[in-house]
């Protein structure tokens, strides 16, 4: 079984993001970029499935500027077998990404797609679900456990009330939550091997997809600064304030 793992290049989670002065987005020039952490979990899960003999090949896909090849290279160093880069300078929104992935699925015929539940830059939490809808495949989102049994994927999902377990007919889409696994560090020998693994570069037009954005970004602004709290002298004063000012009791 082939596994497809989409990986997104995002601003590193350690970076304190800065909003551009014109409100058109966040500053990415000269900022450290890394693989979306949820996607790292997805790569790790795919590699584990191959180590268990469930999967035979792992394909990492990234989309965007040429620098996204670095993100694919990271996936290859973690254990993916080859990469596909869909190169474009168009701003990619979830629907475009889902359409592009659908076209790649038609070419590659994977038995399973494992991907992050969301990217830490725009927090959309949409691509996996859209792709499932476009393909007409089953989906197991927010997975904290994944077991393949025959032609089914048993997925434990983290939902508000607790854990929900679903059985999906393969091929299927699984989106990863934080507790699914702890991704490995790329070892030096694997970083070296990754250099020799192939990355195929294609353009959206090659896949017959128009990636133009359908949503318009109005503005990006920093959240308001936290203001200092108020010290109260007594419990009575606190209760009074909660009643009259905060109106919560």
């Amino acid at each position: 079984m082939k596994i497809l793992v989409p990986v997104k290049r995002v601003v590193d989670y350690n970076v304190k993001v800065r909003v551009k002065s014109d409100g058109s987005g966040v500053e990415t020039q000269g900022v450290k970029m890394s693989m979306n952490p949820f996607d790292e979990i997805a790569v790790e899960e795919a590699v584990r499935l191959r180590e268990k003999g469930v999967a035979t090949e792992i394909i990492a896909v990234s989309m965007g500027l040429p620098a996204c090849a670095e993100t694919i290279r990271t996936a290859l160093a973690m254990g993916a077998d080859r990469g596909i880069l869909v190169e474009t300078d168009v701003e990619l929104q979830p629907l475009a990404v889902a359409k592009l992935l659908k076209a790649i699925v038609a070419k590659e015929n994977p038995g399973l797609i494992v991907m992050g539940k969301q990217a830490i830059d725009d927090d959309m939490n949409a691509t996996g679900q859209m792709l499932a809808a476009l393909l007409g495949w089953s989906q197991g989102t927010f997975a904290s456990k994944l077991v393949i049994e025959g032609d089914h994927a048993i997925v434990t999902r983290e939902v508000d009330g607790g854990l929900e377990t679903v059985s999906l007919q393969l091929p299927a889409i699984v989106t990863t939550d934080l507790r699914l696994n702890e991704p490995r560090y790329a070892s030096l020998p694997n970083i070296m091997k990754a250099r020799k693994k192939p990355i195929e570069t294609i353009r959206p037009a090659d896949l017959g997809v128009d990636p133009a954005p359908r949503l318009t970004l109005v503005t990006v602004a920093e959240p308001p600064k936290r203001v200092a709290g108020v010290k109260v002298k007594s419990v009575a004063e606190l209760v009074a304030k909660l009643k009259t000012e905060a109106k919560v009791i």
């Binding site: 670095e70 290279r73 160093a77 560090y185 790329a186 030096l188 970083i191 070296m192 990754a194 250099r195």
Partner: peptide, 14 residues
């Protein structure tokens, strides 16, 4: 280069 950056990042992660 890309490999040297990967080395830097890999070591820092460990």
């Amino acid at each position: 280069n890309e490999q040297q950056l990967a080395i830097d990042e890999g070591v820092r992660k460990v």
